[in-house]
C-alpha cells in the first residue's frame, strides 16, 4: 500500500497526517515531509499516525530523526494516536517512552 502524507498548518501546530505503509521504500517521503516541516513550524510538530497500517524500523528511525530535528530547532514533537502496529514497533524498539504520544487528534 502506498503512503499518503498530508500537512495542515495552524497557528500553534503543524500536523503531518500519515496513512498507509511506512517501509524501506516509502520512509524517505515521510522523512522529507517531517524534516521540511520542523524548522518553519509555528508551534509544535504533530505526526498523526492513526492511519498507518505498517511501519518498519526505517519508519521508526525517521521519527527519531524528526524528534532530533525538533530538539535542535527548539520545537515540541508529538506523535498523535499511533495505530496499534506503530505502538507495537515503538515498544519493541524500546522507544515508546522517548516520544511524547497524544491519544486524541
Amino acid at each position: 500500500m502506498a503512503l499518503n502524507i498530508e500537512r495542515k498548518v495552524s497557528s500553534d501546530e503543524t500536523v503531518i497526517s500519515v496513512a498507509g505503509d511506512v517501509d524501506l521504500y516509502t520512509s524517505p517521503e515521510l522523512r522529507k515531509a517531517v524534516l521540511e516541516a520542523v524548522p518553519g513550524a509555528a508551534g509544535r510538530v504533530a505526526v498523526d499516525l492513526s492511519g498507518v497500517n505498517y511501519i518498519d524500523s526505517s519508519g521508526i528511525a525517521t521519527l527519531v530523526e524528526g524528534l532530533r530535528s525538533a530538539h535542535k530547532h527548539d520545537k515540541a514533537f508529538v506523535l498523535v494516536t499511533p495505530s496499534p502496529p506503530v505502538m507495537q514497533v515503538l515498544e519493541l524498539s524500546k522507544l515508546d517512552n522517548v516520544f511524547e504520544v497524544r491519544t486524541t487528534s
Partner: peptide, 19 residues
C-alpha cells in the same frame, strides 16, 4: 539495497543492535 539517508541507516543500525 536502499536509498535511505546515512542518518536513517545509523539509527536503524542502533535499533537492530539493541534488539
Amino acid at each position: 539495497h536502499t536509498k535511505l539517508e546515512d542518518s536513517t541507516i545509523e539509527i536503524m543500525t542502533k535499533i537492530k543492535l539493541e534488539l
